[in-house]
Design a protein around this nucleic acid. Sequence first.
DNA 1: TCCCAAGTTGAATCCTGGTTCAACTTTCAG
DNA 2: CTGAAAGTTGAACCAGGATTCAACTTGGGA
Lengths: 213, 213
Amino acid sequence: MAVARDRSATNASDEDGASEGKSPRTARGRKTLRAILDAAAVEFGEKGFHESSISGITTRAGVALGSFYTYFDSKDAVFRALVRDMSTQLRDHVTPLVQAAPDGIAAERIGLESFLEFVREHKEIYRIIDESEFVDYESYRHHYTTTVERIHQRLKAGAARGEIRADVGEIHAWAIGGMNVFLGLRFGLWDRESNPREVAAIANDLLARGLRP
Amino acid sequence: MAVARDRSATNASDEDGASEGKSPRTARGRKTLRAILDAAAVEFGEKGFHESSISGITTRAGVALGSFYTYFDSKDAVFRALVRDMSTQLRDHVTPLVQAAPDGIAAERIGLESFLEFVREHKEIYRIIDESEFVDYESYRHHYTTTVERIHQRLKAGAARGEIRADVGEIHAWAIGGMNVFLGLRFGLWDRESNPREVAAIANDLLARGLRP
DNA sequence: TCCCAAGTTGAATCCTGGTTCAACTTTCAG
DNA sequence: CTGAAAGTTGAACCAGGATTCAACTTGGGA
């Protein structure tokens, strides 16, 4: 839910979610921006981009309609900010857990398991990321490209350590990425009962034999 | 491209793509309906649901704006018809090829390969199916549920024949489904150079060891 | 304390595009 | 051949909602 988290906000560039050259200058402004971003996450997650309205966002945020335009240039702009933000939050949740994995194969199991957990906590993620395909294709492409690239790097690292077959490549990485997204949809979003650990274990078992050297 | 294909149009229910109780009664009407559906596939595929307009569709179809409402109740209604149609076309392309596979593992290879081919021929499919998540969630859920269910059935059949591990289940099916969708996005839609056969072979090799008894 | 930049406000503007409808044309059953 | 049903037409209507803007408020530095 907390969308604009504390960051060591470098300077007045962007880095916070605001549009180019619209960063808040005071504490009051930062508070308002955060309220708008959080409200937008809820509004977009609930209704989707097109059904959402700026006034819906500002009402939720408890600020006036016009204040929105103090921080964002357009409806598209908040959405873009949100996609970047969700993408970052997800990465920040998964990365440290994965890095603590004992080996390359387990890393993928933990990656999936922590992804499932994340989805349970943030049901908005699918609607927001998926809808970026239509609102801002660049963000969409960027999200999946970097996500899969991270998987690919992990696989190569595992291969270097001799834990994974030497010929792993991009195709394997995309296959794993897709597997994760679908399992997240089915067992993270739709079925909130199943146990993420079990799901991840079963999927990982499938993968393990295929990935071993 | 051909969206409303010949069907042994049973009666005046729906079965063709038109809205409830709006089926054409004459040859002229059927021709117009087909033109509208084909145009809608192109328009939606190109611009997405919200950027598309009814007038854009009717212009492409070469008919007047009002004629649209002779066959569909609303913009949503054509979209729904289109999702059902793409979903059916895809199934009809893949199923016979898969059924001719020598064994359960090869079936999945051929399933992926033929899916990649289909995507190359129908770039609209991703935009249309994906956007149904926002326009008509039921259709969206239905599409993926039935698609994965088909994979699941194949796996179980393979298991019964002893070609696939006996404990295959829904999780494996969703994993494969996700893998296919992502590989389709990356190597069917984005990169139109790569060879579907090779991609499918590599992905299937990953799977094979995990699926064998 | 005073002042100005930063921030807030919400009514008014503007525009897009879905949907309606009444007049007109074509088809085809009897 | 003929009339009613089916189909066609596109101008006009209308709602929703993004964006603008000029007046107003706040807060912190000098």
